[in-house]
């Protein structure tokens, strides 16, 4: 467990909760996959808040190193693949994440941080399903590919 970061992860999680609270005070659920997918294509009158939220995500993350944040994750390659193989894996993963979160109406933020906060049975079911599948996926990858 030498990579465990209880304090920064808990504090980061609390900040995600505060951000989600703020957006609900504006009437919206902070589900990142939903905010993105209803922007493709943009609908008039419903696009600006989505673009601003995503711009905020990028600028907020960009501010992290300015506060002395650890940037060693930039070369993260969990399964120690070659560069080309890692690209192929990320493209397959991206297609699955995009399609899956659209069909399943949410991801770790919408179903996780917000849906569990609303005590939604749909969200609890989704979180348990994608967590279980992801755990099995990582187990298979570690067994087959290693890393």
């Amino acid at each position: 467990m030498e990579n465990f970061t209880p304090y920064s992860s808990l504090l980061g999680g609390i900040i995600l909760g505060v951000a989600s609270t703020l957006l609900l005070m504006a009437g919206r659920i902070a589900g990142i996959s939903g905010i993105l997918s209803y922007l493709i294509p943009p609908q008039s009158g419903d696009a600006l808040w989505r673009v601003l939220f995503i711009a905020g995500l990028i600028v907020g993350a960009a501010a992290y190193p300015l506060f002395g944040g650890d940037m060693s994750f930039l070369n993260a390659n969990p399964y120690q693949l070659s560069d080309n193989a890692h690209y192929v894996l990320l493209i397959i993963a991206g297609l699955l994440v995009g399609a899956g979160t659209y069909v399943g109406a949410g991801c770790t933020s919408g179903h996780g941080v917000c849906g569990l906060g609303r005590l939604s049975l749909r969200s609890l079911t989704a979180v348990m399903s994608f967590m279980a599948v992801a755990v099995v996926t990582v187990f298979v990858m570690r067994t087959v590919v290693g890393g």
């Binding site: 990142i32 996959s33 993105l36 995503i54 995500l57 990028i58 907020g60 993350a61 993260a76 969990p78 894996l89 990320l90 397959i92 993963a93 991206g94 297609l95 699955l96 994440v97 995009g98 399609a99 899956g100 979160t101 659209y102 069909v103 399943g104 109406a105 991801c107 770790t108 933020s109 179903h111 749909r122 079911t125 989704a126 979180v127 399903s129 994608f130 967590m131 279980a132 599948v133 992801a134 755990v135 099995v136 996926t137 990582v138 990858m141």
Partner: peptide, 26 residues
């Protein structure tokens, strides 16, 4: 839809280690 979408997402999440929020932020 809820279950099959979550299954597809879990598969992609486990393969890439990225979900939509961290991907867009990064």
């Amino acid at each position: 839809y809820l279950i099959s979408g979550a299954v597809l997402f879990g598969l992609g999440w486990g393969l890439g280690g990225l979900c939509p929020g961290p991907a867009l932020s990064s």
